[in-house]
Design a binder for these strands. Sequence first.
DNA 1: GCGTTGCATTAAATCGGTTTAGTATGACTA
DNA 2: TAGTCATACTAAACCGATTTAATGCAACGC
Lengths: 342, 342
Amino acid sequence: MTKKISIVDIANTLNISKTTVSFILNGRAQEKRISEELVERVLKLVKEVGYKPNSLAKSLRTGKSNIIGLMVEDISNPFFASIARLIEDRAYEKGYRIIYCSTDNDTGKTQDLITMFRDRHVDGYIMAPPSNIDDDVRSLLKSGSPVVLFDRYLPEVETDYVVVDNQFSTYNATRHLIEQGYSKIAFITFSSQQSQMMDRVTGYKNAMKEAKLKTFIKEVDFNRNEELIIEPIHAYLKKNPTIDAVLFGTDHMGTCGLKVINQLGLKVPDDIAVVSFDDYDVFKLHSPPVTAIAQPIETIADNIITLLLKKLDNGNAQTMQKITLSTNLNIRNSSKQVVKAV
Amino acid sequence: MTKKISIVDIANTLNISKTTVSFILNGRAQEKRISEELVERVLKLVKEVGYKPNSLAKSLRTGKSNIIGLMVEDISNPFFASIARLIEDRAYEKGYRIIYCSTDNDTGKTQDLITMFRDRHVDGYIMAPPSNIDDDVRSLLKSGSPVVLFDRYLPEVETDYVVVDNQFSTYNATRHLIEQGYSKIAFITFSSQQSQMMDRVTGYKNAMKEAKLKTFIKEVDFNRNEELIIEPIHAYLKKNPTIDAVLFGTDHMGTCGLKVINQLGLKVPDDIAVVSFDDYDVFKLHSPPVTAIAQPIETIADNIITLLLKKLDNGNAQTMQKITLSTNLNIRNSSKQVVKAV
DNA sequence: GCGTTGCATTAAATCGGTTTAGTATGACTA
DNA sequence: TAGTCATACTAAACCGATTTAATGCAACGC
């Protein structure tokens, strides 16, 4: 219960003013021509008593908090969790801390969160934005806070973002399935007006159109309760038994999809071929392993934080950067043609 | 770039003192007998101009930040990510925000993090503690901050915690394997002096001893680089080809273990039976599905946050609560006996 | 008419820093 | 000997809230 040491205590002990202590601690000793001897005495005492400036007081005065607000769709999703982890590491090195929140893709909740971040004076924002959040993001930018979007972007808002080439990714994956000889290829995804989802649908549609194939698109509403995702997929696949391949729109969708396929007793890829967006352990370890579109997670995280740190350094000055990275189609089972050759 | 409204602006507009505004906004109007008429006028203006108190200033004065520090081993691990998510939700409802960090089980890093949380005046701590952090936790408690540990605890520190019955869980899982007819059962886990790992080893050992079987224990050093986990497991299994069953100490270990088993071309469970601590999609979707020890994630998260919120309300008064929850062995393939009957 | 009490409100201190605008001292110039 | 300048440091304002200790005023009892 010992009271915390403040800058005044340091100043009093040495019979100097707290201004001096502050200057020294902020590396302005030279500039303010404070004698080396005094600098040393102060630093020695500070170390001795383990004095740490109160960062709240500091933030209040300077307006800087050294905190970055991170808003993802759902931190328990492996894609977002991995990105969050990598961002955390890089930010930590630079003295920034992360406050994170899951938006659930809910615009209202996200607005709340922005308000809360705002009045906590976070220095910058990293966000996988839900739809209809344009005005709020614009208002952040207008008030001088850097914002970096990722995973999806807001076409109407001029800001930095890091995304992947969703359209080409699904186009490519669909092409792959077509080349394997599948023709009744379904695309199952979350219903969403967000850029990444629209692009993924478009890629799929384009490939199918090009091959003159009929499209099978099933959109499922997002829900925290997995049962409510599994059920409509189940119904859809049951109602369309001719479907011989499925492209899933996200890792979560893919995972749920595999559960359905198991339930239905279908064999991958003989009964039904599967490709999923996002690549993680579930797909790698599935037997047979599932082909997946791998996002370059490290590169994404790296670009996000580099972009944001640059803005934070430069006082948010320079121009916007819109970064689009390419994905990798990890082909895992050559299926049909190869007919269990291995 | 409009300057933010402060409490003084509100006070000036209405020609009253900021004290009055503060009282009203903090629900102390009645107590301070401020006329209803004035209360209404203030609230009306506040709403009109969208005034939000600056929470930094508030925290500086009150010493309360409404922030909870959450320290997990690695936020990208599904177990911790799920817990974090559930805690976040509950805390959010109650007006608390979460700052999280991954400790990597590194004592030094954790000490850094504690220092940083401390000088940001977080109101409470939730932590999956690394080893040798006893003194730091004690010092937090001494300075009046509530701390709730989870996943593991510090036997030497008197504090609240929420854990599962690790020893019984692995005992039970090992018994299960023995009853299935396996006898060369290995336990592969991370090398660690922490309570949860020690207990898991003990549970395994007890079951083996009871059955008069020889133990096979492999401890692997934790590393962020998955390759460095996979490699030793690979070497171990290759060197001990008689092993017919493996119990993995954590989900991460289990995932890496399955990768090795795939690499070696072994079939589960005919060549080698697998049980893992922690249950998640990878194990459920593996074919054949893998038996796993499921921790009651919701209940754990719920208990943690309930415990902490109670302490935060009561000024950290009452006694310690040590909660031990039981796990569930999700048996997924009856293996040997049933001989692919399905 | 004077002291007491209740009411409605507020001035000023405080939290712990940073920053602005000085000040005191001695050396050097003219 | 007064004026300028560099040096080494500091008093006080400030960030935006909360909280303590008062204050002015009206009504009331005696």
